[in-house]
Design a protein around this nucleic acid. Structure first.
Lengths: 212, 212
DNA sequence: AGATTTCTGTTAAATTCTTGTCAATTACAG
DNA sequence: CTGTAATTGACAAGAATTTAACAGAAATCT
């Protein structure tokens, strides 16, 4: 159906959604691309171009209806679906992600947590119990799990990803510092925190270089 | 000194560094752009082009020396510096980041943690005590803090960022779900986790659309 | 030592992404 | 109800990024 939309465009949609959400909260009814461009510090042209990848949501002389645009972008992002997810790795990061109530609001439902550490098994995050890794395959199958969040060290991640794929996971949100090799029908989104920190490091030291 | 290197290139350097680190661990001495391109699933051309932004690290007929290239990229990324950092927000995410020993290895030294919740004050992460927010300004100044990690809800983040800037912070690693407005001499790296999750959601639902 | 292969750095071409422009449509004021 | 201002969607122009091509330098083979 869709031709393909570049990941650059997709990457900007959540930010549009965030600003539109704020406008909704302020009961703003309509907004033009140029007003929005000032708020968001991007060009109006880019906003119009991005939105037009998905069809015309605005109206000449009027602009965009905030509520309508918000809901259209939500749909594009697939946020009207409900996704069941599990977290593998019940350390601080796993617990942090499991505790975010906002994810639930967006339709991401935490169904289970797993860890190999016996000390953590049985502990809870928001009524969800941490289970042993052995239970993982059966759990995915019988609970219709769509997404697995990988918050374990890179050593185990590749193997766990294999198990996930074998049991029919649709997507992996990968916080392990390693590239996963999965079939193309499994979606992977990497969050490599140390990469992000290194970028910051580059920008600090490059700024210092240029201004000393 | 440097002309400006695009953020796209910078964003790829940490990944090069990761692969080179793995090669180092395997005692691989040299590698050509085309071998590396196979490992990393990018074009050899891109690797050569990226590296040449910073000067010629390779040699015709030989390729790149792994150790040398690793250390050059480390330098480019500013990883030979040492950075003092603090974490603001001692929830699970803050604790997770504070606990990463790998950051220390890269030269990022955790000097303090802060939270407004009295229940958390005095608790520790790796010998580092959580302090009350009131102590923040003085602490930054007297401990030569370079980087602040913001792991607090968006409501407080804008205000805290203001305080950070006033007290001379150089960079902010921002996990709060809001765009910070800071002077251009303060480097900001955003990690918007829910944006990342939405991208994943888009890719899941777009894949399903195209393959039903 | 000379011939052959490997492989970089660099330039050129192709592609993708971003920005600017403007006709056409709609809203709104008088 | 008509004229003016606002604003989109589409397209064109301009930038930036990525990929390809290749001359020439170094390594390796015989």
């Amino acid at each position: 159906m869709d031709k393909d939309i570049s990941q650059a465009v997709i990457g900007r949609l959540p930010r549009y959604l965030r600003y539109l959400g704020e406008l909704k909260d302020k009961n703003v009814e309509r907004i033009s691309s140029s007003e929005l461009s000032v708020l968001m510090k991007v060009t109006a042209s880019q906003i119009r171009q991005d939105l037009n990848n998905f069809g015309g949501f605005g109206q000449q002389g009027y602009g965009y209806n905030v509520d309508y645009l918000y809901s259209e972008i939500s749909k594009i992002l697939g946020l009207e679906h409900q996704y069941n997810f599990i977290i593998i790795g019940a350390g601080n990061l796993g617990k942090a992600l499991g505790g975010y109530l906002n994810f639930e609001k967006r339709g991401f439902i935490l169904k289970g947590m797993f860890d190999k550490d016996p000390a953590l098994i049985g502990t809870e995050v928001r009524d969800v119990k941490v289970m042993p890794m052995d239970d993982l395959p059966a759990f995915i199958r019988s609970n219709d799990i769509d997404i697995a969040v990988l918050t374990i060290p890179k050593e185990g991640a590749v193997l766990v990803a294999k198990v996930l794929v074998e049991n029919g996971i649709k997507a992996i949100w990968n916080f392990a510092h390693v590239d996963l090799d999965v079939p193309e029908y499994v979606q992977v989104e990497n969050v490599h925190l140390s990469d992000s920190l290194m970028k910051l490091s580059y920008n600090i030291s490059s700024y210092m270089e240029n201004n000393k």
